[in-house]
Every structure is written in structure tokens, then in C-alpha cells.
Amino acid sequence: MTWEELEQLPEEIASRIELWDGRVVWLRRGPGEHQIFTGRLWAAMERCAREAMSISSENCWRASFETNIFFGATGKSDFVTPDFLVHRCLESPYQDLRSADVMLVGEVLSPANTPSDIEAKKARYASAGIPVYWEVDLAREASAIAAIRVYALEPRHGDLLPEGVRVLHTANYLLSREWTPSDTKGIEFDFPFPIRIPWSELEF
């Protein structure tokens, strides 16, 4: 399917589709908790971005959620839609967001997400060269976040593998940080700007 064909579909259908090199990938609808915690993470990222820009005007950042990221310099038939993200400010209003401008993407994982779904999308982000991937696990027995993990891009993954062994994905993510609600200091990470999020800001 092309982007032009996607635009001809009813909005309620088109909004549930990603295009992976023209292949239709259906997005799963998560529970209400998924939307709540996506909003919490986006709001926290936006607050941190604004604080960073108030201290230094050297960089301009935007935090967003459920925004299409188009791969490559042109074309729109290859894109993903993360739950939340941070990107460089774009030159003009309503400009398409390209993966080269994205610094951070995040997914809020619902119990319905399968490991294969998670790994496939993570591989897409890595292949696009997005530096940091956040993964948010929801608790199964309560409306709460169970853990947050941050992965950093390793763009030359597999260089030292034994002869005859090949990797499935040439770019991959390595676990950089992990937090649970037992970490009383909350979330602290310094890319692409200082991110400080107390757990109280992420409550249901």
C-alpha cells in the first residue's frame, strides 16, 4: 500500500495502520491505561524539554505523541507511529517528521503486546538510526508502571561475530538504564537533554 492509498481510507481505519516499506501493519488498541501512561510520559518529556530550552537556547526540542515518523529523506509509504517521542524543532509548521530529526522514541507496552511485535518495531527504530528507545512496561495486576527501560543505539552491531555468523539486524539497541517504582529518585537520564521525572508524575 502507498501513502496515497492510505489517505483514501476512512480515518478510523487509517489511524490504526503503519506502513513498513509499503506493507500494512495493524496497530493494536491498548487499554485505557495505555493512553493514560502515554500521556504522562509525553507531558513529562515536554516539561523537561521546555526546562532545558529555558536554560540554553542552543537546541530546540519538541516532545510529541502518536506522531508518524517517516523513514528516508523522501516518500511517505514507510513510517512508524511511536507512543511518544522527542525530535528537533522543524523548519516550518506542519512539516513531515523524518527519522533523521528524531532523538528519542518510546513505546508503552500493554499486556497484549507480543515479544515478536516489540522486537520488530524496536528493530525498525534501530535501522532508522534513532539514538534512544524507551520501553515502558505496565503492571499486570494494577494500573501502574512496572518498569521503564532505556536502550541506546549500537549502530555497528555484530562486527566481532565468528566467521560464518550473520546478524539479523545490523543496528541494534543495548540496555542503558532501567527503573522501577522502588527507585525513589525517579527517572534520571541526560539525553537528548536532562530528563528528571519523579514517579509521582507518572501515577495513574
Rank of each mutant, 00 (worst) to 15 (best):
E5L: 14
L6V: 06
L6D: 05
L9E: 10
P10E: 06
E12G: 06
L19I: 02
W20A: 09
G22A: 05
R23P: 01
R23A: 12
V24N: 06
V24T: 09
V25L: 09
W26V: 15
G32Y: 10
E33A: 13
H34N: 08
Q35D: 15
G39L: 05
W42T: 09
A43H: 13
M45P: 00
M45G: 03
E46H: 06
E46N: 14
A49G: 04
E51C: 09
A52L: 02
S57L: 08
S57V: 03
N59F: 11
R62C: 08
S64A: 13
T67E: 13
T67I: 02
T67H: 05
N68D: 13
I69P: 00
T74N: 09
K76A: 11
K76N: 14
D78G: 08
D78L: 07
F79L: 12
P82Y: 00
D83G: 01
F84A: 02
F84N: 08
V86F: 00
C89A: 11
Y94S: 12
Q95T: 15
Q95W: 11
L97D: 11
R98L: 07
S99G: 07
A100L: 08
V102L: 06
V102E: 12
G106F: 01
G106M: 05
V108L: 07
L109N: 06
L109C: 06
S110T: 08
N113I: 03
T114H: 11
P115T: 08
P115L: 04
S116W: 12
I118C: 02
E119I: 12
E119C: 10
A120Q: 14
K121T: 06
A123W: 10
R124S: 02
Y125I: 07
A128C: 06
I130T: 01
I130W: 05
I130R: 05
E135Y: 06
V136H: 03
E141S: 14
I145T: 08
I145W: 01
I148S: 06
R149F: 04
Y151F: 14
A152M: 00
P155R: 08
G158M: 03
L161S: 09
P162M: 10
E163R: 13
V167T: 15
H169R: 12
S176Y: 04
T180G: 01
T180W: 04
T184E: 15
K185Y: 10
G186H: 11
G186D: 10
E188I: 11
E188C: 09
P192M: 10
F193G: 02
F193M: 04
F193D: 01
I195N: 04
R196E: 11
R196P: 01
W199Q: 03
W199V: 11
S200P: 01
E201L: 03
E203T: 14
